[in-house]
Every structure is written in C-alpha cells, then in structure tokens.
C-alpha cells in the first residue's frame, strides 16, 4: 500500500499524555522501529482501533513506511482495523477451558448479546447493533486453573457460569 492511495479523512495525533508516554518509550530502544508495538497499543487505546490515519502517524513517528506499519498491524490479533464495541469480550476456547464447559458460557453470551462471534477479518459480525459489545474467541489466556474465563477489555473474569455472566453484563 503506498501512501497516496490511503484515504485519510481526519489526521490522527497523540494527545498530550500519550505523546509524553511515547517520548519516554522511544528512548528505550536503539532503533525507533522497536517501539512499534507499544506505540500501536497507545494509539489503539486513544482511537479505539487502528485507522489508516493512525498508521500514517505511527509511520511518521517511527520513520518507517506506512506499509511496514500495516504489515505489523495485520499480523497481531490484538490490533483492530475496524471499529469495535465499547466492551470487547474475549472468551477463551482452548482445551483446558473446553474441558470446563466454555461452550455453555459462549452459547449463553451469544444468546444474551444477540450476536455471533467476530472473526479476525470481520469484527462487525461479533459486534452488537448498539455498538456496546464485541464478542470474540481467543486462545488460552493463561488462566486455565480458573476456567472457563473471559476478558472484558482489560479485566479477567474467572470460573464463569451463565449466571455469573448475567450478573457481569448487568453491571457493565
């Protein structure tokens, strides 16, 4: 992707706090490119997802081509290229959680939210119409002892049952 063909409506810029954090970050590495992942995390936290404008901005900050940034963004599942809900619900469905009936929790979530599960290329599929929730399946969250687990944005919820899911969603 060359820079000309990207349609950029409104340019993106870090807010004060993030700019300060970025300035601190960049000093940690002998090459600027290495600050890529933390920088993208900062940008995603501010903007909600990685827009073309974000990629262009990050490319300028790190003195790289936009293509290189795009290359990285597409590789990592945690970076979104589409808008997601206010609450991103990640449900683990790897073996230890499957042995503890994560399927029941997943089915319950699907029914309760009235949405399907997002796929990496189609986040809208798992996003509720009001834009409040996005439901996605993820691999082992390193909490198999308290399976089944979900993460809602940054927080982990353990030993889930349909009742606990109800309670949790009602409190959001």
């Amino acid at each position: 992707m060359s820079e000309e063909i990207i349609q950029i409506e409104t340019p993106f810029q870090f807010n004060e706090d993030n700019k300060r954090e970025f300035d601190e970050l960049i000093g940690r590495y002998p090459v600027k490119e290495a600050a890529m992942l933390p920088t993208l995390h900062l940008a995603q936290r501010q903007e909600g997802y990685i827009t073309p404008a974000v990629m262009k901005y990050v490319a300028e900050l790190l003195e790289l081509s936009v293509m290189k940034v795009k290359d990285v963004v597409t590789f990592y599942p945690m970076f979104f290229e589409e808008p997601v809900g206010k609450y991103v619900i990640r449900i683990c469905h790897t073996l230890p959680c499957a042995l503890r009936d994560c399927k029941v929790v997943l089915d319950h979530l699907k029914e309760k939210l009235g949405t399907d599960v997002a796929s990496e290329t189609n986040l809208a599929k798992g996003t509720t119409e009001d834009g409040k929730f996005t439901l996605m399946k993820v691999e082992c969250l390193a909490s198999c002892d308290v399976a089944p687990v979900i993460m809602v944005n940054d927080d982990l919820y353990k030993n889930l049952t349909p009742e606990k899911v109800d309670e949790l969603l009602d409190n959001l």
Binding site: T94, L95, P96, E139, C140, A142, S143, C144, D145
Partner: peptide, 11 residues
Amino acid sequence: DESEPGTFSNR
C-alpha cells in the same frame, strides 16, 4: 509471553 495452552505459572 506465556501462551502455551495449559500454562499459567508466570502470570
């Protein structure tokens, strides 16, 4: 990076 399914001690 602890992500091997079934592992959770580093966390």
